[in-house]
Every structure is written in structure tokens, then in C-alpha cells.
């Protein structure tokens, strides 16, 4: 038996754009199963913190208690420390009902409307027991809108109160994953696409008149091709805009010029787009997903006793076959 055999791939990455809540990168030299596993994990298995237990002390608002509890759960919380926290199910330090640094973060909210002006209760009214775990919006991290007075940060609306109404509660945020409830998913969107490779047949293209070229270029629903103003040649301007609709191929056939273009999707190269809710950085979502996939694969390794039991079984079988 060849013990040195290995079928390991050596993937590579190139980041195109990176912001806290947005990431676009190329992943090469691997296959769709790895790309898809990482995508699925970013959506459903990268842990974050979300409000999971709410004790309402007073609620005279128009929304009922469970409606408000649900809305609180959906507020994304800064969850950088989630990876180092315990799931309250696995926490031995407490009975899981809060006030435990290992598995939970406590929030309080106490708002009363005393004027004739409608009062908005928002995520900014939540007081956290841990300064690193706060609703995403209250950090004012939308640097793009900084300095724009009209777009002042007002937090995520929870409920509106009129004069005399109040809302007072205690909430416990816990660690969890999107597989349990979507409120724990750090992903706004995670997608990947195959990288298209577009080859134009220059010789065949030169048999077209300028009007025919224009007609062919315009047959694509997305702007993949254009005509160079100077040389009047068809050029590929944005291969990734191609939606695998095959319209240009059909058009070439209809014009009596089959083979004008050849489009293949490279099945070992992917373009990923990751958008975060703000709970954790987009780049960390991907790194966490890699770690989680490794842990998952390690978790499905055969235990020693399972392997040994099968070895004995094999020997028994060989013995019986030999004995007959």
C-alpha cells in the first residue's frame, strides 16, 4: 500500500475588495464542494451573539411582549468575542439564565415617553453589560455617510411609544449559529460564481460588418462585450457580467456565424461575494468558516475503537474463509 499518496489541492486566493462588512475575492485551484461548504458554513454555522432571552418588566406599548422579544433577537450585535465564548448549553459555570461571563451578555432597556411627541425606542436604547458587545448600528461605522447630517445614526427601531407608554426589560444575548435560528447568522449574503473564460474568434468576427458587430454585441442582456471606438473590433469588457444565458451564442448561430465566441466556465475558480450584517467582519466570516469546516471534518474522524473493531472483524472474516 502506498502510504505516501495524497490528493491534496493547493488553493490560492486574491482579494479584490475588502471592507469591514464586504469582501470580494477569487478562490482558485479547488472545487465547488469546498466553495459551497464554506458558503454554507458562513451562512449557517459561523457563531455570533444575539438576544435569546427577554424578561419584560413593563410593557405598555402597542406591541405585545413576544413581538418585542422577537424584534430584539433580530438586532445584529458586534460578535467578535463569540468565537471565544461558550454555548450556554455547554456552559458548566451557570444554569443558562444569564449573568455569566462565559456564555452570555446582559442588556437592559428602560424607556418611557413623557411628551406628546412620539418616541422611537431603538437599538441605541439598549445598555450592554459588555462594551465590546453592542448593537452594530450604534458604532457609527458607516463611514460613507459620515458628515452627512441628514443621515445621523439613530439605531434600529424596536417600537414607538406615545405619551404615558413605557418599555422596561432585561435581555440576555447568547452565542448561537444560523442553523439554530437565522438571527445568529452573520451573513447578509454569501455567493460565489464560476469564473467565465470568453474566447472570441477574431477571424470570424472580421467577416462581420460594423452594424452586424453592434447587433451581436447588443444581443447580450448584460454588458459583456463592446466595440473598440478606434479599431472597431469587438472586445470583452466584463467577462463576469456574463450570466451564462447563452444569448450571444444563439445570436451567432442565428447570424450564420456559429463559433463566433466560445465561453467556458472554469470549474476550479470562483468569485466570492461576502456581505456581513456587521456582527463580525466579512474577512473573519471566511476565516471562521475555514476553521469550522476543519473542526467538522475532524469531528467525523473514525474513533480508535471503531477502527479496531473493524480490524478484528476483518481478521475474523479471513479466519473463517481460511477455515472453510
Amino acid at each position: 500500500m502506498d502510504m505516501s499518496s495524497s490528493y491534496q489541492r493547493v488553493p490560492s486566493v486574491r482579494i479584490r475588495e475588502m471592507k469591514d462588512d464586504f469582501l470580494k475575492f477569487e478562490l482558485r485551484d479547488t472545487d465547488a464542494s469546498i466553495a459551497n461548504a464554506l458558503r454554507r458554513i458562513m451562512i449557517a454555522e459561523v457563531p455570533t451573539l444575539a438576544i435569546d432571552l427577554v424578561e419584560i418588566e413593563a410593557n405598555s406599548s402597542v406591541l405585545n411582549d413576544e413581538f418585542i422579544a422577537h424584534r430584539l433577537g433580530l438586532i445584529p450585535l458586534k460578535s467578535e468575542k463569540a468565537v471565544n465564548m461558550l454555548l450556554s448549553r455547554d456552559c458548566n459555570a451557570c444554569d443558562g439564565d444569564g449573568r455569566c461571563d462565559f456564555c452570555s451578555v446582559e442588556f437592559t432597556l428602560d424607556v418611557k415617553c413623557t411628551t406628546d411627541q412620539t418616541l422611537d425606542v431603538t437599538s441605541q436604547d439598549l445598555r450592554s453589560s459588555d462594551l465590546s458587545v453592542v448593537p452594530v448600528d450604534s458604532l457609527g461605522q458607516n463611514t460613507g455617510s459620515m458628515g452627512d447630517a441628514a443621515l445621523e445614526q439613530r439605531g434600529i427601531l424596536i417600537v414607538k411609544l406615545r405619551r404615558g407608554q413605557e418599555l422596561k426589560l432585561r435581555a440576555i444575548a447568547r452565542k448561537g449559529i444560523g442553523k439554530d435560528h437565522a438571527k445568529w447568522s452573520p451573513a447578509a449574503t454569501v455567493t460565489f460564481q464560476y469564473e467565465p473564460e470568453i474566447h472570441l474568434n477574431e477571424t470570424l468576427l472580421e467577416t462581420l460588418t460594423l452594424d452586424q458587430k453592434r447587433e451581436w454585441v447588443e444581443s447580450s442582456p448584460t454588458k459583456v462585450f463592446d466595440i473598440d471606438q478606434v479599431t472597431q473590433q469587438v472586445v470583452v469588457v466584463d467577462p463576469e457580467a456574463y450570466a451564462y444565458d447563452e444569448e450571444v451564442i444563439k445570436k451567432a448561430d442565428a447570424m450564420g456565424k456559429p463559433g463566433l465566441v466560445e465561453i467556458i466556465s472554469r470549474e476550479d475558480s470562483f468569485i466570492f461575494t461576502v456581505e456581513s450584517t456587521g456582527a463580525i467582519k466579512a474577512a473573519d466570516m471566511f476565516l471562521n468558516a475555514i476553521n469550522i469546516l476543519r473542526q467538522k471534518l475532524d469531528g467525523v474522524r473514525l474513533s480508535f475503537d471503531t477502527q479496531e473493531a473493524d480490524d478484528q472483524f476483518g481478521e475474523l472474516g479471513a479466519h473463517m474463509r481460511g477455515g472453510l
Partner: peptide, 27 residues
């Protein structure tokens, strides 16, 4: 089957370890 299964898990782990390093370097 067991040998193939173990080899697959080992190769995947090495691939992901490499991917992690490559991504961190790129960041």
C-alpha cells in the same frame, strides 16, 4: 474504505490549512 476515508479527511485538512494561511497572507 477506512483508509480512503482517512486519507480524504487528511487531504482536506491540509488543503484548508493551506487556504487559511493563503487568505491570512492576502489580508
Amino acid at each position: 474504505p477506512m483508509q480512503a476515508y482517512n486519507l480524504a479527511l487528511n487531504d482536506l485538512d491540509k488543503e484548508l490549512e493551506h487556504l487559511k494561511r493563503a487568505f491570512e497572507a492576502e489580508i
